[in-house]
Nucleic acid binder design. Structure first.
Lengths: 255, 255
DNA sequence: GCAAAAGTGTTGTCCGTACACCCATGC
DNA sequence: GCATGGGTGTACGGACAACACTTTTGC
């Protein structure tokens, strides 16, 4: 048989789903949209949509991200754009046969890291969107398996996808400069520290953190200005430097 | 419009492609099969095939791996099986519109790490298979963009997929115990060191390596036996321990 | 003055590196 | 004996944690 005989393989629908993370009020939050139709009508879900004909997977993810947030994301490989660009990278692909009860759908999940935006801009076919702390969205670890049905607030297998995205973000800021993607173009060392603290859910020593990030070549470049928007003594403003890998990495405290 | 109207999305073919790596004669090698048909007839390609109806992505990858190598792989999440199991994990998904000239194909690439097998067992629809050193398969970095057409020996975008898989393997053995997946069930510290040296392409200090791996709790458990199969003084035999994360990590020497 | 946040200095400790040195086998 | 690989001891240095301490603002 020819392996490309059109009758020899089943057709799939291919979608992209987005795990869009930000840090708000010292907590890691994810963008979720309310489903307006069956199945899981009224439940929260990750934003996403179908990949179009003649559209690459990354392009579909960027399009969905722009529709939902207005953010202009740049690819992980390209040099950081000067726009208010979020970080976007492919996360993983989910294609279990029963994950959508209606048809066979393979979803290529992407992970986006965004600065704290003023407000979610609902767009596309979602009738509402919000930033929700990830603790509210993820299933509790120690929940008994026979708990009541609404064990996860997210539709489909989006709880699992979100958990994978959060885990990726938590580990990746450890050895890369990705944490700056959570910050506005100019930020202080304290603001960057609060990003790490929010993503990891821990407290870091401000003095050692300051020495660490300012001492890593290429991580931060001073922009010249200062700010007192966090109160206290004026703090230097920085931009993200060109370095993408942190060596030695930022050490996450033991659990 | 309903986003699930069957006429509202284009149908895709979904395949799994495998990056199967092993260490042979101190070199990192990948399993490739020769294509028997157009396009890229006669060129080498990564093994792979269509995902079946009602088949999960990981199940399709395990099936393809078994067909090509006879290996019984276990999932990344499950505890290590006692069989001669290889490591298998999802790598990334490739779906550029033109990557297959005949149709729109989305390929979910997987990464498998296998011990040095006696010989490749060609199976399925490939008429020949071999282990090839990855340096021969990857495009040279400094090649001029206007070099002659056969710049990469691999079909489709498999050169890129292989490069991503090699990069994943190289970085992952740094902070996990995955290097043991390249070893037979019982192995010596020296054999494990040769795995690291082959994957990274560097030389490691045998004394410090020994102290490091035997001093990391849960990484190696002595099996009681010894061997002289590498010559010299008899070496203790070990099995892989239960630990999956290496903390502190194995440090890769600077490039 | 007082609180709050930004920075700097110092010290002990852990860990990686480099290298000297000894051990046990095959030939 | 000698080559080969296995395994231990030890000294040096870099980096991190845990502080004490000073600086500069708003109120």
């Amino acid at each position: 048989m020819s392996p490309y005989d059109p009758s020899a393989f089943p057709p799939f629908a291919v979608t992209v789903d987005l795990v869009v993370l930000t840090v708000r009020r010292h907590a890691l939050c994810a963008l979720v949209v309310r489903r307006g139709e069956q199945p899981f009508q009224g439940r929260w879900a990750l934003p996403g949509g179908f990949v179009r004909e003649d559209e690459d997977l990354g392009a579909a993810a960027r399009r969905e991200l722009a529709e939902e947030t207005g953010l202009c994301a740049h690819d992980a490989g390209t040099p950081p754009a000067e726009t208010s660009g979020a970080h976007l990278e492919q996360l993983a692909t989910y294609g279990a046969p029963g994950r959508d009860p209606r048809m066979r759908v393979v979803s290529v999940a992407h992970l986006a890291l965004a600065p704290d935006l003023p407000a979610p801009r609902p767009g596309g076919d979602a009738n509402s969107a919000r930033w929700a702390p990830v603790e509210e969205l993820l299933e509790p670890e120690g929940a008994p398996p026979h708990s009541d049905e609404q064990q996860t607030p997210l539709a489909f297998d989006h709880g699992r996808i979100l958990a994978d995205g959060v885990e990726r973000a938590r580990s990746k800021i450890e050895y890369s400069s990705l944490a700056t993607a959570f910050c506005p173009p100019e930020f202080t060392v304290g603001e960057l520290r609060r990003v790490y603290e929010g993503v990891w859910g821990v407290a870091l020593d401000p003095r050692n953190f300051h020495r660490k990030v300012t001492g890593t070549p290429g991580f931060l470049v001073p922009s010249g200005g200062t700010t007192t928007r966090q109160g206290g003594r004026p703090a230097q403003l920085f931009r993200a430097g060109g370095a993408t890998l942190l060596n030695p990495p930022m050490l996450r405290p033991e659990v």
